[in-house]
């Protein structure tokens, strides 16, 4: 894992870019590493937001779901790239990852569905369904799109061996 920092001068004034390169096999070997990496990213990046605790909790939750999902889609030897950018009140997370050939089509279908608004009905049907035994787990990405207003845009390369996803996480405290 190689963290890289760019353009960081003052927490409150400079937009930060933060990159991590992780081998998918590391996460597959120890699932709890998804949690560790998500918390690490969240704790670091949340300093950019005024509502820090809210941001940290949100970023960790969203990042963990992506790490859990994409690490299971990737060949073990493939690299995952996670890049975070602070943009006004949003956090933009870009993820590049390898893709197992057997999973490319259902993954493309899911990304296409998540590009539109996720209805309550759609999300609840996934939430209450049994955990899939084969294939990949689609609940996590559906949950972050539904519960956290996350916008997900993704594309696969021509050979369908590599995917790029952009995730925009709105960091706002709801009126509660």
């Amino acid at each position: 894992m190689e963290p890289t920092l760019h353009n960081r001068t003052e927490d409150e004034v400079s937009p930060l870019t933060f990159e991590l390169h992780i081998q998918a096999g590391d996460l597959q070997a120890q699932w709890k590493r998804c949690n560790m990496v998500a918390n690490y990213i969240a704790e670091y990046v949340s300093y950019q937001f005024s509502e820090r605790e809210w941001a940290e909790n949100l970023i960790s939750t969203v990042t963990n779901e992506f790490l859990e999902a994409v690490s299971s889609l990737s060949p073990a030897e493939a690299d995952l790239l996670v890049r975070c950018r602070h943009r006004e009140s949003d956090l933009v997370i870009e993820i590049e990852h390898g893709l197992r050939p057997d999973i490319a089509q259902p993954y493309a279908t899911l990304l296409n569905e998540l590009a539109h608004e996720v209805s309550d009905e759609y999300y609840l049907s996934r939430l209450t369904a049994n955990r899939p035994v084969v294939g990949f787990n689609q609940l996590g990405l559906t949950m972050v799109a539904h519960d956290f207003g996350v916008r997900i845009v993704g594309s696969l390369n021509n050979a369908k061996t590599q995917a790029s996803i952009q995730v925009v996480v709105p960091i706002r405290t709801p009126h509660i």
Partner: peptide, 17 residues
Amino acid sequence: LRYINAEGMRALSLFVA
């Protein structure tokens, strides 16, 4: 409970059912 993941939510939904 600081965090939960989607599978944790699925377990809770099973309990509600």
